[in-house]
Simulated scan of single mutants.
Amino acid sequence: MADDKSKQDKRDRDRVAGDEDYEVRYFANSNGISVDQARELIRKHGNDRKTLEREAKSLKG
């Protein structure tokens, strides 16, 4: 079955949905931090993916 091209996804890929457990887990795993650390970063810095990735890097290094 082919994708319906008339239905476009309105989600913002530049944001991490902090209220979605699967997305927080994915972000944490892909950045080598714990889920609790990821939630703390989202709480502290908002949900901008670039900012969160930069802050996650600083936690590891």
Score class of each variant (00 low, 15 high):
residue 12 D to M: 10
residue 17 A to M: 04
residue 24 V to A: 06
residue 40 E to S: 05
residue 23 E to Q: 07
residue 15 R to E: 15
residue 15 R to V: 01
residue 32 G to T: 13
residue 19 D to S: 08
residue 33 I to A: 01
residue 20 E to I: 06
residue 2 A to K: 15
residue 26 Y to Q: 09
residue 12 D to K: 07
residue 25 R to M: 10
residue 46 G to C: 05
residue 58 S to Q: 14
residue 48 D to C: 00
residue 32 G to W: 12
residue 58 S to K: 15
residue 20 E to N: 04
residue 50 K to L: 10
residue 52 L to C: 02
residue 49 R to W: 04
residue 59 L to M: 05
residue 8 Q to A: 10
residue 44 K to W: 01
residue 20 E to Q: 02
residue 50 K to S: 13
residue 1 M to A: 12
residue 5 K to I: 14
residue 27 F to N: 02
residue 45 H to Q: 08
residue 36 D to P: 00
residue 48 D to F: 02
residue 27 F to P: 01
residue 11 R to F: 11
residue 52 L to H: 10
residue 17 A to L: 05
residue 19 D to C: 01
residue 36 D to I: 02
residue 57 K to S: 12
residue 45 H to V: 04
residue 25 R to V: 11
residue 13 R to S: 05
residue 44 K to D: 11
residue 7 K to Q: 11
residue 28 A to W: 10
residue 19 D to E: 06
residue 27 F to Q: 07
residue 37 Q to P: 01
residue 24 V to I: 13
residue 38 A to E: 05
residue 44 K to Y: 02
residue 28 A to V: 06
residue 14 D to T: 14
residue 24 V to W: 12
residue 34 S to R: 02
residue 24 V to E: 11
residue 13 R to D: 04
residue 35 V to T: 08
residue 57 K to Q: 15
residue 22 Y to I: 08
residue 54 R to A: 13
residue 42 I to N: 01
residue 13 R to I: 03
residue 4 D to R: 14
residue 3 D to V: 15
residue 28 A to E: 08
residue 2 A to F: 11
residue 21 D to A: 12
residue 2 A to T: 15
residue 40 E to N: 08
residue 39 R to V: 03
residue 42 I to Y: 09
residue 22 Y to G: 01
residue 7 K to P: 00
residue 22 Y to H: 04
residue 2 A to G: 12
residue 15 R to Q: 13
residue 17 A to P: 00
residue 36 D to Y: 01
residue 38 A to M: 09
residue 5 K to G: 02
residue 18 G to P: 02
residue 58 S to N: 14
residue 14 D to G: 08
residue 27 F to S: 02
residue 16 V to F: 02
residue 2 A to H: 11
residue 61 G to W: 06
